[in-house]
Amino acid sequence: MRMLLGLIFPDAGQIFIDGTEFNNSRRHLLGKIGAIIERPDMYGYLTGWENLKMFATLSDKHIKHDRLHEVLEIVGLKGREHDKFKAYSQGMKQRLGIAIALVHKPDLLILDEPTNGLDPQGIAEMRGLIRSLSRDHGKTILISSHLLYEIEQVATSMIVLHKGRKVTEGKVNDLLNPDETLVDITMTGNAGPVIAGSQWAAGLVAQGDNSFTFKMNPAHIPALNRWLVGEGIDVAEIRSRHSLEAYFLSLTDDSITAHRAV
């Protein structure tokens, strides 16, 4: 992400944005990009309005006051713009960050971990905002996140990186098979042999003392549950993982049980 914005320099390779090589026309390209890199850090001693106005000026375009009000409206900071930035909540800071990223009407928005440090409500708001920007304002948005569930909900296309390498890329709908998910089941008693001898063993991908992980169609979960109970095994918990997470883990299967992101 930082390389895309020229913050750090690649050891090798070139960056093309919209078909243009980045280093040769850095200024031109940056003028068409809006970005938030990790935390939305701004000048705490300035007000939201002053921060917004300042970065708007730096965007190399002439931006009218109306536009500033407009983006404040979009991100829902209207009425609070004259508070000092340092008095903002994390969510407000993030929203001001988006406002700054939007103010010069960029073609591309780059959001690096936009939900970092937000509370659940903030995350939900951010999700709504990203959706509306994409749907209502027609922006191309590049999001990086380790919160796979969030990505799943807003993204149309995705690239999966693992340990710095691309694992796969494509449309979310194509990549994610809605008929397949990972299901974690915690049960008591000696369930291992029972399962091993059943039709369900085919879907078993990981096994602990009392916990089993199956790759299966979520529609079959009730049937599995019924079967386990019928076999006299007490089921303590059945948890279906989110689909993208499941997909990601299946691509990088060295860590299926190690990563239990919530």
């Binding site: 914005l5 913050l7 705490g44």
Partner: peptide, 14 residues
């Protein structure tokens, strides 16, 4: 330190 350099340098300024 404040992190503002990040944002500043993503603006089209040499």
């Amino acid at each position: 330190n404040a992190g503002t350099l990040r944002l500043l340098l993503t603006k089209p300024i040499a």
